[in-house]
Computed example of a mutant assay.
Amino acid sequence: MTLEVSQRGKEYLKTAQTLLRAAQTMTDQAIAGQLKALADDYQRRAEKASHVDAAKALARSVTSAEGRMAYMI
């Protein structure tokens, strides 16, 4: 099953990429490591947000289908 990245997930990924680019320009390895860890966190947030958003969309779809079925009965 392939999960499409939600808009919110895309924003998290964009932030992660920005953090990684900043980390690559750092001469202080401690700060670079912290930025990389923060980027990893944002990548996890992107995945979680996409899962949550997909679940919400599915729930809306089911609710909508149930409403249409009730109308037909």
Rank of each mutant, 00 (worst) to 15 (best):
M1A: 15
T2K: 11
L3H: 12
L3S: 07
L3T: 07
L3K: 05
V5R: 12
V5M: 10
S6I: 05
S6D: 05
Q7A: 11
R8S: 03
R8L: 15
R8N: 10
G9A: 01
G9S: 04
K10Q: 04
K10P: 02
K10C: 00
Y12S: 01
L13N: 08
L13T: 02
K14W: 13
T15M: 03
Q17E: 14
T18C: 04
T18Y: 08
L19H: 11
R21P: 00
R21Q: 08
A22P: 03
A23N: 02
A23T: 07
A23H: 15
Q24G: 03
T25W: 15
M26P: 05
T27H: 12
D28V: 02
D28I: 00
D28L: 01
D28H: 10
D28C: 09
Q29Y: 07
Q29I: 14
Q29V: 13
A30R: 06
I31N: 03
A32K: 02
G33K: 05
G33V: 01
Q34R: 09
L35R: 02
L35F: 01
K36D: 01
K36T: 13
K36H: 03
L38T: 13
L38S: 03
L38H: 00
A39V: 05
A39L: 09
A39F: 00
D40Y: 03
D40Q: 10
Y42H: 04
Q43D: 02
R44A: 14
R44H: 12
R45T: 11
R45D: 02
A46T: 04
A46S: 06
E47R: 05
E47L: 00
K48Y: 11
K48S: 09
K48N: 06
S50A: 07
S50C: 11
S50T: 04
S50Q: 12
V52M: 11
V52C: 11
D53V: 14
D53G: 14
A55T: 15
A55F: 15
K56E: 03
K56Q: 09
L58Q: 06
L58A: 09
L58M: 11
L58R: 04
A59M: 04
A59C: 10
A59I: 06
R60Q: 10
R60I: 12
S61Y: 13
S61D: 13
S61E: 14
E66Y: 01
E66F: 03
E66S: 03
R68W: 05
R68C: 08
R68N: 02
M69G: 00
A70N: 10
Y71V: 08
Y71L: 11
Y71S: 04
M72G: 00
M72I: 02
I73W: 14
